[in-house]
């Protein structure tokens, strides 16, 4: 589905150039469950941002393969802003460490938002999502009325409500205690598996990483599979 080829990304700090991604190659297929670990500042989030077409690499390609034309792909690094917006709207779900929900609307409205934007509202699917994440009791509450763990579960539901083929999660359990962290990470992986949504999760927790099928380690700009 997504093929990363020879991605390079560096940044300049006080006149010095630091290479953060150095010839990254990775293939993400439908339904894959991938975790990326690494030390703080290793470039994990940068990689995720590139996958979400939020940023552009210095060189390399990220090919989005059309299932009907497996040998041809759109290079998302060459997307215009409009194309990037469309890509994120339809093909990607994003979960962040925090600030995932809009305070002034209910849980249900938060969850439904991406689906309504894309027009892909399927009541049954949404219900299934809510049940899987055990948040159906909270649908009329405001985010401020939920605990941290509950909020992240709602965020997962929101990230999946428009049925994206790919879900990108950047440290989804970073702000949670260990109990909620276990619960949320478990739910994240199983829900994605259930929905056949590819998951790429950035984490610094080995315990969370072990839940995924593939574990990769990003160090010194290089990605190696554990």
């Amino acid at each position: 589905m997504l093929a990363l080829k020879n991605l390079k990304k560096s940044y300049t700090d006080a006149g010095e150039q630091h290479t953060i991604l150095n010839n990254i190659n990775l293939t993400i297929n439908a339904g894959d469950s991938i975790s990326i670990q690494g030390a703080s500042g290793s470039g994990k989030s940068t990689l995720l941002h590139l996958l979400a077409a939020l940023d552009k690499p210095d060189s390399g390609e990220i090919l989005l393969n059309n299932s009907q034309q497996p040998n041809q792909g759109n290079d998302i690094t060459q997307f215009t802003e409009k194309e990037a917006d469309a890509y994120r709207q339809f093909r990607v779900g994003l979960i962040f460490q925090k600030f995932n929900l809009i305070d002034c609307i209910t849980v249900m409205e938060n969850v439904m938002l991406p689906a309504k934007i894309t027009g892909k509202v399927q009541g049954e699917y949404i219900q299934e999502l809510l049940d899987a994440l055990d948040i159906h009791r909270h649908i009329n509450k405001l985010p401020s009325q939920l605990s941290g763990g509950e909020q992240q579960r709602v965020a997962i539901a929101r990230g999946l409500s428009h049925q994206p083929p790919l879900l990108l999660a950047d440290e989804p359990t970073g702000n949670l205690d260990s109990k909620n962290s276990d619960l949320v990470s478990h739910l994240l992986v199983t829900t994605c598996k259930k929905l056949n949504t590819a998951l790429v999760m950035v984490t610094h927790s080995q315990k969370v990483a072990l839940l995924t099928q593939q574990q990769w380690y990003l160090d010194d700009g290089r990605l190696t599979q554990i």
Binding site: K82, R88, I102, L113
Partner: peptide, 14 residues
């Protein structure tokens, strides 16, 4: 800012 970021991340144009 967070809310705007969220909405933009959902693919809504600037």
């Amino acid at each position: 800012r967070p809310q705007n970021m969220l909405i933009r991340s959902m693919g809504v144009s600037a």
